[in-house]
Amino acid sequence: MSVRPEPSQNHLLAALSPEVQGRLFPHLELVPLPLRAVLYESGRAMRHVYFPTDSIVSLQYVMESGESTAILVVGNEGLLGITLFMGGESTPSRSLVQSAGYAYRLPRARVKEEFQRHGQLLVLMLRYTQALITQIAQTAVCNRHHSIDQQLCRWLLLSMDRLSHNHLTMTQEFIASMLGVRREGVTQAALKLRELGAISYGRGSIRVLDRAKLEALSCECYEVVKKETDLLLPYLPQRQLIKDAGSIPVVKL
């Protein structure tokens, strides 16, 4: 039997004081997030805020042509649904589950009630929002100026930072959709990274062999986001920077 995720597996929830946790935790609901599930659709009313425990959700902008690009990823470092406390009731982007797992969700009314206390949750959510703004801005720069190889490195590293486990499951088409590129471009980028020894690539999977090398092959965009996130969110655990055979992510393609 699988172990039931605890709210404390979400680092933002874990950083709250016992007093705030006591007000919020009784209203948290654990929900499964299957791959490709849509949590928020563009223009539709948002009813909950989601706190991932072992899943990753991406925010995507979808064009009239149907093409889409991910502008940020959210995992166990924070929450999904900042629009609710920024004054809006809906979002122009689509929220799509990138890596399956679980999340705790909190009703809109409870979020606003706690936010209006102007206490700890307000401070953490505002700091987290600033971290997301940095990620969005750097993603825009990266998509415009850097190669698909570098974008794939950035995406893999961001995903590793936001998981409590080491497995991702998704198709080449899905990765291409995340990066806003053609599937052939993702295949070529993965092959190049394999030749350079950063990953292994075969039988429909990507295995990160050397995180330090992956960081070296990535553009500066990952490091900019990482530094700002670490500065704004000191509650995050120290990230693993050395090669560790027991924590090698696998991406199913």
Rank of each mutant, 00 (worst) to 15 (best):
M1K: 11
E6T: 14
Q21E: 07
F25H: 09
P26S: 09
H27E: 08
P32D: 08
V38C: 12
L39Q: 09
L39K: 06
M46E: 14
F51M: 04
Y61T: 09
G66T: 02
E67D: 14
S68V: 09
L72N: 10
L80F: 09
G81F: 07
I82M: 11
S90D: 14
R94S: 07
Y102L: 00
A103Q: 09
R117A: 09
Q120C: 01
L121K: 05
L122E: 13
L126M: 13
L126F: 06
Y128E: 04
T129Y: 10
Q130M: 15
A131Q: 04
Q135M: 15
A137M: 10
T139D: 01
T139P: 00
R144P: 01
H146P: 04
Q151S: 05
L158M: 11
L163S: 07
N166W: 15
N166P: 00
L168K: 03
E173T: 05
G180I: 05
R182A: 01
R183D: 01
V186Y: 04
T187H: 13
T187V: 12
G204D: 02
G204T: 10
V208T: 10
R211S: 02
E215R: 14
E220I: 08
C221N: 03
V224E: 10
T229G: 03
L231E: 02
Y235M: 03
S247G: 00
K252V: 03
